[in-house]
Amino acid sequence: MAIIVNLDVMLARRKMTLSELAERVDISIVNLSVLKTGKARAIRFSTLEAICEVLECQPADILEYKKEE
């Protein structure tokens, strides 16, 4: 997929683990893992908002577009 999720980068910057983020965002760790590994098909705005609020970042910090060749 052309959209790349850089969640692990932001987690490293904020020194937070995936399980901590899952607890604070109130999303299962399984779903967050799916998002982190790039297997998710779509993300809701409410989910993106919750993640950005907890990680104190912008959506562009998490989502990146890379054109597929």
Binding site: V34, A40, R41, I43
Partner: peptide
């Protein structure tokens, strides 16, 4: 349904 289940 699969798309829905893979929507976070």
């Amino acid at each position: 349904n699969e798309e829905e289940s893979m929507t976070i």
